[in-house]
Design a protein around this nucleic acid. Structure first.
Lengths: 192, 192, 192, 192
DNA sequence: GATGAATGAGCATTCATTCAT
DNA sequence: CATGAATGAATGCTCATTCAT
C-alpha cells in the first residue's frame, strides 16, 4: 500500500483516507463492537489522529456511509444508460444495493444503529435525488413502471431492501421481484 | 394500586407480568436508553427480581417481542375469517402490523437492535407459521395471490414493512399497496 | 477497622463513610491528581461503588468539604462558650480554620478549584450563619469588635484566611492578628 | 490589521507580543477552558509558533502574570508620590489591585490555578520588593502605619485581596478597609 | 423468593506537547 | 523560523450483571 515511510508528510488527508478505509473494513468484519482505538491501531495512527479527522464516532460512521452512497451513485450512473428499460434500470440498481448490503451486513447494521435512517446530507443527497427522479421518469415514460410511481417509492423500497438484505430476513432477490412487479403498470386498475 | 403492603402476597409470577408490562411501556416511550434498573424501579421491585424472571436484558426484550407476536396472532385469527379474499386477509394483517410498529416505534427499534431479526422461538413460531400458511393458501386458492406466493414471502414482507414503519422511511400504507400489487397473479408472464 | 469480612453486608452506607475517609486522605496527600479509580482502589471497593455514593467527582469533593465544615462547626460550638470575649472567640475560630487549611493544603486546593468559593448548601449553611451571627453579636455587645462588624465580614475574612493558609502566602497567624486588629472598635473614628 | 501578506516580515518577536496579548484576552473572557490551539488560532499563527515562544502552557501564563505585575508596578510608581500619607499610598495600591482582579476574574483564576501563589521571578520581583519596602517605610515613618508593619504583611494582604476580589467572596473594598485599619498604629497596646 | 449494593470492564473523548516538513 | 498534523496518556462515567444477606 502507499505507505512509503512511517510518517510520510501526511500529504493533506492521506491519513483520513486510510482511517476511513480501515474503519470500513473493521466495521464490516466485526460490526459495532469495533472501538475507536481499534481503528486507530489498525490504521497505524494515534487515536488523536482518528479524532482529528472524525470528531465523533458518529462522524466516522457518517463518512463511511457517505462513501457507500457515492459508490452506489457511481455504479448507478454507469448502469443507467445500459439498461433496456426504466424498470430494468431500477432493477439493476436495486440488485446492486442488495448486494452491497449483503456483502457488508455488519457494516450496514452499524450504520443503521448509529444514524437511524437519516438520508445523506448535502450534495450527495441532491445527486441521489436527481438520479432517482431520472430513473422513475424513464420508467413511467417507457411504460415499464406505474404512472404513479415516485421517487419516494423508490427511496422507501431501497430502505426496505437494505433491511431485508442486511438482516437476512429472506431472499432479497425475491424481494426485488415482488417489489418490481408491484411497480408495473396496472393492467387491471380495479383489483378484484 | 395493588401494592397495599410491602410484599402483597408474592402471588406466583404476578411480578413477572408486572415487570413485562412496565418494560414494554418504558421501551415504547424511551427506547433503548431504558436501563434494567429503570424497569425495576418503575415496576416497584428490586432489580434482582427482574433478573430472576429475565436472566438477561435480551431475555426481557424477547419476552416483550413474543407478547407482541401473540397480540398480532390474536388479531389475525379474528380478522382472518372476515376478510373478503386471501389477499384482503393479508392486507388486513399487514395494516395491523404496520400500525403496531408505527405506534411503538421506539420499542420496535429496541427489539430490532437487540434481537436482529430473529423469529420467535417455540410454540408461537409454529402458530405464526400455521397462520401464514393458511392465509397464503387461501389467496392462491381464490386466485387473489400469485400461485408462487409462499410463507417466506409473507415473512419477508412483514420484516420489511416493520422497518418502513418504525424507521419512518416512507408511507407504509403505500408500501403495502405496492407489495400486494406485486403479489397479485401475473397477468403478463413476460416479466422474469 | 470495622471490615470483618470482604463484603460485610454493607450496613447502609458503611462503604460511603469509608470512601469519604479514603478520598479525604488521598486528596490531602496527593491533591488534584487523585483519580476516582485511585479512591476506589484504596478504599477496596469497585469504582462503581464510589459512583453509586458520589455520582460525580464534584459530588465527592462537595461531601468532603461539607464534612470539613461540620468539623469546624463542631469545634466552634465547643470553643464558643469558653472564650473570654467575642473577639477572642472569633480569634479562636480563625486559628482553627487556619490550622485546618494548613494541615490540608492539597485538599484545600482541590476543594477550591472544584467548587470555586461556593458556600455549603442546606442545613450546614444555616448553622454556619447562625454561629457566625452569634459570634459577631457577642463581640459587638461586649465591645471587643467594631459596632459595624457583620457576618459578611467574618465570611470574607475566613475565605481570605483560607487562601493565605493553603497557598502559603505568608504567616496566617499574622494575618489573623492584622485582621482582628482591623475589627477592633475604632478609637479614633476619623483616621488621620 | 498588520497581516498584509502571509508572512509580514517576521519582525523579531512581533509574534510573541501578539500571542501574549491574545492569550490574555482569551483567558480573561473564557478562563481556564482556553486551549493552546485557541490561542494560536486567534493570534493567527500556528500552534508551533506559540510553543516556540512559550514552551509550556505554564510559561505562557507566567508571562501574562508578569505583564500584569508590570502594569501594577507602573501604576504604583505614578501614584506613590501623589498619596497624602504612607497608608493612603498603600490604600491606593490595594484598590488598584482589587480592581484589576475584579476586572479580570477569569484570568486571575487561571493564574492562580496554574501558578499557585508563586511570586514573580527575576527583576520584576526585585522592583516589586523595592516598591513595597518604600511604601511601608513611608507609612511607618509618617506614623500612618504600625511600626511593625513589613513588606511581608503587604505581600500577604495583596494575595488575600486577590482571592476576595476574584472569587467574589465579599466586598473587597470593605476588605481593604478592615485590613488597613488593622495596620494602623496601635492606640491600645492591650491586644496581643 | 426478593432485595439492592457492589462490581468493573468498557468507552468515547480531550488536549498539552512534539516534530517532520 | 513557522506550521499544523500527529500523538497517546489520561479521565470521568455507564450499566448489565452478580451475589451476600
Amino acid at each position: 500500500m502507499p505507505t512509503p515511510s512511517r510518517r510520510p508528510r501526511a500529504d493533506a488527508g492521506r491519513n483520513r483516507a486510510r482511517v476511513l478505509e480501515v474503519a470500513a473494513h473493521l466495521f464490516t468484519e466485526r460490526g459495532g463492537e469495533v472501538q475507536m482505538a481499534d481503528v486507530a491501531r489498525t490504521a497505524g495512527v494515534g487515536i488523536g489522529t482518528v479524532y482529528r479527522h472524525f470528531p465523533t464516532r458518529q462522524a466516522l460512521v457518517e463518512a463511511i456511509a457517505e462513501q457507500r452512497f457515492l459508490e452506489i451513485l457511481g455504479f448507478a450512473r454507469t448502469m443507467c444508460e445500459k439498461a433496456a428499460s426504466g424498470r430494468e434500470a431500477v432493477r439493476t440498481l436495486l440488485e446492486h444495493i442488495g448486494q452491497v448490503h449483503e456483502d457488508g451486513r455488519a457494516l450496514s447494521r452499524v450504520i443503521e444503529s448509529t444514524l437511524g435512517n437519516t438520508a445523506p446530507r448535502g450534495p450527495v443527497q441532491a445527486e441521489l435525488r436527481e438520479l432517482g427522479d431520472t430513473l422513475i421518469a424513464r420508467g413511467t415514460a417507457d411504460g415499464t413502471l406505474r404512472q404513479d410511481a415516485t421517487f419516494d417509492d423508490l427511496y422507501m423500497l431501497v430502505g426496505a431492501l437494505a433491511t431485508v438484505a442486511r438482516a437476512n430476513i429472506g431472499d432479497w432477490h425475491r424481494f426485488i421481484d415482488i417489489t418490481l412487479a408491484g411497480l408495473e403498470p396496472r393492467t387491471d386498475p380495479a383489483s378484484p
